[in-house]
Structure formats: structure tokens, C-alpha cells
Measured scan of single mutants.
Amino acid sequence: EVPFKVVAQFPYKSDYEDDLNFEKDQEIIVTSVEDAEWYFGEYQDSNGDVIEGIFPKSFVAVQG
């Protein structure tokens, strides 16, 4: 069931425009499960802007 919160276990950096880049310990709200390997989610950056994109499930852990 979406949405749910995950926390980055590792930093994720990608050159693909659709990917969500983040640092370790970033909290991310997952709004869609793309497939067995990928989530789609969002978070607010330090400027208060909402950043969204896809990212690999293996880089995050589900909270709770």
C-alpha cells in the first residue's frame, strides 16, 4: 500500500533525468511501486522543493 516511508541506506547518484538522487539517511515517501526492483518517490530538499523520481529498492529500507 502506498504511500509509505523509506530511509536511504546508501547514497544514490544517477545521470538519468527520471531517477531520484539522494544521500544516505534521506527519508523518502514512496508514492508508487514501479516493479520488483524500483520505487517511485519524493522528498523535500533543503530549499523546500519537492524532488521526485525512480530509485532502486535495494538502496533503501522501509520504515516501521
Rank of each mutant, 00 (worst) to 15 (best):
D49R: 14
E27T: 10
V2Q: 05
E27G: 03
N47I: 05
V6M: 01
E52T: 15
G53A: 01
K13F: 13
Y12A: 07
F22R: 01
I54Y: 15
V30N: 00
Y12I: 03
S46V: 13
F40N: 03
A61E: 14
V30A: 01
T31I: 08
Y43F: 08
Q44Y: 11
V30I: 04
V33A: 08
V30D: 01
D45W: 03
D15M: 11
A61R: 13
D25C: 15
K57Q: 09
E42T: 12
E34D: 08
F40H: 11
E23R: 05
K24V: 10
Y16I: 12
K5L: 13
K24P: 04
P3S: 05
E34S: 11
D49N: 14
W38H: 14
D35H: 07
G64C: 13
I28S: 00
E37D: 13
E1N: 11
E34H: 15
D19C: 15
S58H: 10
V6D: 02
D25P: 02
G53K: 00
V7N: 04
I54H: 15
A8S: 08
E37K: 08
D45I: 07
Y16N: 15
P3Y: 07
V2P: 13
F4W: 02
Y16L: 11
Y12F: 10
K13V: 10
T31F: 04
F22I: 01
E42L: 10
V50C: 14
T31S: 05
S46T: 11
G48T: 02
V60M: 00
V33Q: 06
V2K: 06
D35Y: 08
Y39T: 00
Y16S: 14
E17L: 11
Y12L: 03
Q9K: 14
Q26R: 03
G48K: 04
F22C: 04
G48L: 04
V33M: 08
N47C: 09
E34L: 15
F55N: 02
V62H: 12
G41N: 00
A8G: 03
D49G: 08
F59Q: 07
G64S: 12
P11R: 08
D35P: 05
G41D: 02
A8Y: 01
V7A: 03
F10E: 07
Y12G: 01
S46A: 13
P11G: 09
F40W: 12
E27W: 08
Y43P: 00
E42S: 13
S46R: 10
V7P: 01
I28L: 05
F40Q: 05
E42R: 13
E52M: 14
V7I: 13
N21L: 05
S32K: 14
Q9E: 06
T31K: 09
F59V: 14
P56Q: 02
Y43A: 02
S58P: 02
E34P: 15
E1L: 12
F55Q: 00
G41H: 01
P11C: 11
V6W: 00
I29Q: 05
T31M: 06
N21D: 05
S58W: 10
V62P: 13
K5R: 12
V50K: 13
G64N: 12
K5C: 13
Q9C: 15
E42C: 15
P11S: 11
D19P: 02
Y39C: 04
S46Y: 09
V2N: 04
A61Y: 11
Y12T: 02
V2D: 04
V7K: 10
V33H: 06
Y16K: 15
E42D: 03
E23M: 07
D45Q: 08
I51M: 10
D49H: 13
E17R: 11
K5N: 07
S58Q: 09
P11D: 11
P3F: 06
V60K: 00
V30M: 02
E52P: 02
K13W: 13
D49A: 13
S58D: 11
Q26M: 04
V60S: 01
A61P: 04
A36F: 10
Y43S: 00
Q44G: 04
F4P: 02
N21G: 05
K13R: 12
V60G: 02
L20T: 01
E37Y: 14
N47R: 09
E23G: 07
K13C: 14
S46L: 11
K24E: 06
Q26K: 02
D15C: 15
Q63T: 13
E17I: 12
W38Q: 05
E34G: 10
Q26F: 03
F10A: 10
V2G: 05
Q9D: 04
I28D: 00
K5F: 09
G41Y: 03
I28F: 02
D19M: 14
Q44N: 08
A8E: 03
G41C: 04
A36S: 12
E52Y: 13
D18V: 11
V33W: 06
D15A: 11
D35A: 08
F22V: 03
S32I: 06
D35S: 13
E1W: 12
Q44I: 14
Q63W: 10
F59W: 06
A8R: 00
D19Y: 14
K24G: 04
Q44L: 14
G64W: 08
V6Y: 00
P3G: 05
V6L: 00
G64Y: 09
Y12P: 00
Q9L: 15
P56L: 04
V33F: 08
V7R: 09
A8H: 01
D25H: 10
F10W: 12
Y16P: 06
S58E: 10
D35C: 13
P56H: 06
V50P: 05
F55C: 03
K13A: 09
D49Q: 13
K24M: 08
I54M: 14
Q63H: 10
Y16M: 12
